[in-house]
Design a protein around this nucleic acid. Structure first.
Lengths: 202, 202
DNA sequence: TACATTTGCTTAACACTGTTAGGAAAAATA
DNA sequence: TATTTTTCCTAACAGTGTTAAGCAAATGTA
């Protein structure tokens, strides 16, 4: 009875094509341009079909948000593995995070509710932090290694970690809304400089 | 002929009531809930009246965005004036910026396109940075004073300034989307700590 | 006072949006 | 072949931003 499997496969293929086109439209024209009917047009189905795969529009965004965090975590993980020294690991993590934000800007936007898209993701408080957990752990380990190398107590690692994350996120956000004098190129320099400062002060 | 003035006054009063209710709705229910018809309902006019005061919905957002930057700059200015030492000035600026973001979250959101609202403000590149100019100058002066006190060359002031701004903005953004373990209280501690690090590394 | 014009404002409409209900056609099962 | 199930679409509802047309009252002019 391979026909049931084929149907299931086709069904899942429709679902992933919905996600794919949503991301495509967002990438090319911004999240403002992503509508159920436009997605339906592209995948050559009628609009209600989408509701057989997603409860509502926000569910689509939520799934792409999770996808974004998954990809980011993977990239951070492999980036860190490629380096030996803690300082180099942290620098590599910063560069990887930065590159992700500009290579997949539409994902980064939905991950952090910037650029006109709002995805509160049903759950209120705790849920939102779960997404960051894995990525934060990768970064935390690098900072722990640096602390060990410096012979520091590891109690206040998370203060520095959050500052590190906030610095990156802030610089990326400001660059995306075009609020940095000198644009992306200079923002990148600001980041490198600030990361160095953060490490020597750590 | 005071009647023409009265009419002009009434007209301007309608305009400011539009801005006021737009901000009110955004404050209470988020920017998603702000619609032309809802504003019209509150001010007890029909919807098209709004287009006699604003070209389109985005023009309303733009005006509130500018209002936000105006208020922020004022607050930064008075906060800095209240302190003598550069270090205290910078710490006061950070606290003021932080308080503004949480006391007028709806304004902060429209200022930086976070939380579902998107306001590109007609102009493309340079326009967006103009808003920050005044606020950045207030901060820059404090850092210049610190540099003078430390006897440092003032060439790389803006690198630290942008990092300072990005750190604050990032921490606020992450806190608003609930991505900081420990919430607002801990985020505030992270900021204080990071600002201190930034100053000693400067 | 009588007519013309401007002003202030509203209703109606257009083209969208997310979402749901009802039913037609095609496929699978008996 | 007949019946049931699956698949999918059209139509509709309530909402969005925005524009056009027009009504009625206030104003200016003869």
């Amino acid at each position: 009875m391979g026909i049931a499997e084929r149907k299931q496969r086709q069904r899942e293929q429709v679902k992933s094509s919905i996600l794919e086109t949503a991301q495509d439209i967002a990438c090319q024209e911004g999240w403002q341009a992503v509508s159920i009917r436009r997605i339906a047009d592209v995948i050559e189905y009628s609009a209600p079909i989408i509701y057989e795969h997603f409860e509502n529009k926000e569910a689509i965004l939520l799934e792409l948000k999770q996808k974004g965090f998954r990809i980011l975590t993977e990239k951070l993980l492999t980036a860190r593995s490629a380096q030996e020294e803690p300082e180099e690991q942290i620098r590599a993590l910063a560069k990887t995070y930065w590159n992700f934000a500009f290579e997949h800007t539409e994902l980064y936007q939905v991950m952090f509710n910037i650029g006109g898209v709002a995805c509160n993701g049903q759950g209120n408080d705790g849920d939102s932090r779960v997404h960051m957990r894995n990525g934060a752990t990768v970064m935390a380990d690098a900072f722990r290694a640096l602390a060990a190398k410096k012979g520091k107590p590891k109690t206040d690692i998370y203060l520095t970690l959050d500052a590190f994350w906030a610095l990156q996120h802030g610089l990326i956000s400001l660059t995306l809304v075009n609020k940095i004098n000198g644009g992306k190129e200079r923002a990148e320099k600001v980041l490198e400089e600030a990361v160095s400062s953060l490490m020597i002060a750590f």
